[in-house]
Write a protein that binds this DNA or RNA. Structure first.
Length: 264
DNA sequence: ATGACTGGCCCTGCCAGA
């Protein structure tokens, strides 16, 4: 089973690239972030026509997450929002269980973690609060001792080697010691960073800013992650970054990241 | 040199992203 996470930075702008990616890569599960539209504006018919089941959690203009699952795989037990988020309108979390005839089930979440800048504003504590709610929810889910993949745009640069110019990020919400500590606390629940496990080299990036020629100069950062429970990590075959999509016309500033799990 | 872009909104500069 191949599971992809991709922050598309507006699904309306990126529908063409998404459909091309589905046709070319045929991922079994796709976790999308930054839809930037309400549920009724998601290009559901086109994605279903491409052979995928669709569950979305959208909102007007900002945020928005979705799960796509390639038929005949099933998608059940959908959860929208984290426990403790009930009064929060920010559309940043959707989860479901993927299952099929010859496939051991995998619980998958699509997560759009808050950016957290500016650090002096209320946005930074909101980011840390979200990370803590996610850690608690991960702990709950992991008690089931089944395969779990928490995938998404974490807006956290875990280590200096995950940025081309770490000094430029030193005071940024993506790289502050508190952000990195909260991310490590999540990993310490027993999760494995899937891409890191398969490719421990420095300089593997998933995001390049549109500005300042970041892409041609390869001034990237690694902030899109797939975190695996032990039962999922036992099934990990490979992980890869679909970097070529950053070179297309009108690209997202993020590229897809994919892990492949054995079926059982 | 320390700039540089993109998307949504609902129409015009501004907020947000990272």
């Amino acid at each position: 089973m191949r599971i992809t996470t991709w922050n598309v930075n507006s699904i309306k702008q990126r529908a063409g690239h998404l459909l091309a990616f589905l046709a070319e890569a045929k991922p079994d599960v796709v976790c999308l972030q930054e839809l930037k539209c309400q549920d009724e504006a998601f290009p559901r018919a086109e994605v279903e026509e491409a052979g995928y089941r669709v569950e979305t959690l959208g909102q007007k203009a900002y945020n928005g997450v979705a799960l796509l699952v390639r038929a005949p795989l099933a998608l059940a037990e959908i959860r929208r929002g984290l426990p403790g988020d009930e009064a929060d309108i920010q559309a940043r979390y959707i989860e479901g269980v993927v299952s099929g005839a010859d496939v051991a089930p995998v619980r998958v979440a699509s997560i759009y973690l808050p950016n957290g800048n500016p650090v002096a504003s209320e946005k930074y504590p909101y980011k840390l609060g979200f990370l803590e709610r996610l850690r608690r929810h991960a702990r709950t889910l992991m008690r089931a001792e089944t395969a779990l993949v928490l995938a998404g745009d974490y807006n956290v640069i875990p280590e200096a080697e995950d940025a081309a110019d770490p000094e430029a990020w030193r005071a940024d919400a993506l790289f502050l010691p508190q952000s990195r500590a909260a991310f490590r606390a999540l990993l310490a629940e027993g999760l494995t960073d899937g891409l890191r496990a398969c490719d421990p080299r420095a300089g593997v990036y998933t995001f390049w800013d549109y500005q300042a020629g970041c892409w041609p100069r390869n001034q990237g950062i690694r902030i899109d992650h797939l975190l695996l429970s032990p039962q999922a990590a036992d099934r990990l075959v490979s992980a890869s970054v679909q970097k070529h999509l950053r070179g297309l016309e009108k690209p997202s500033d993020h590229v897809p990241v994919t892990v492949e799990l054995r079926d059982a």
